[in-house]
Amino acid sequence: MTDRDIIDGLMNNGNRDHLFRLIVDKFSERLYWHVRKMVVYHEDANDILQNTFIKAWRSLDSFRGESGLYTWLYRIATNESLTFLKRDKIKTFFSFTDSYKNVEDRLNADPYFSGDETQKLLYKAILSLPPKQRAVFKMRYFDDMKYEEISEVLNTSVGALKASYHHAYQKIQKIIEDSV
């Protein structure tokens, strides 16, 4: 079944349960990797993915099919990830602990991360970025998305995104440079 068929089914009061199963089946893995690259840790990605589909399920009736199914879900997942990252930032701030050390410890102990030392260094640097900057970096660097596409997802001007990506790139470059 194509995306168009699913959308038509939703618009024409088709079997919601069946159509939603198709949506989950079709997009969960792609969305998981999108979220995972944003938040890095599996447990966090798992929570966000589930929340994304719960939100999608709740707002299924308001989906008008103006955008593609994946675009719609991608936006929800991105927003959920950003909300999570912001909350995580507040939590870290109030815990009065060394956030970089926390990241390092958690990454070292993560059984679902198998990167070598250089990749570990890259992810530690990425985890030090502010939430929105991290999202921009991830979409541009890893997903090769165009600024115009990122602009639609994050609802931010192309100019601001370019500046944000530049800052993120320089910051990560510096962290790696200092550590190598």
């Binding site: 998981y32 990797w33 995972r36 690259k37 890095v40 599996h42 059984p111 679902y112 991360f113 198998s114 990167g115 250089t118 990749q119 890259l122 992810y123 660097y141 890893f142 790696i176």
Partner: peptide
């Protein structure tokens, strides 16, 4: 540094 999906694993 080149990203590849294998850096991350899942249960």
């Amino acid at each position: 540094i080149k990203f590849n999906k294998e850096v991350f694993k899942t249960p």
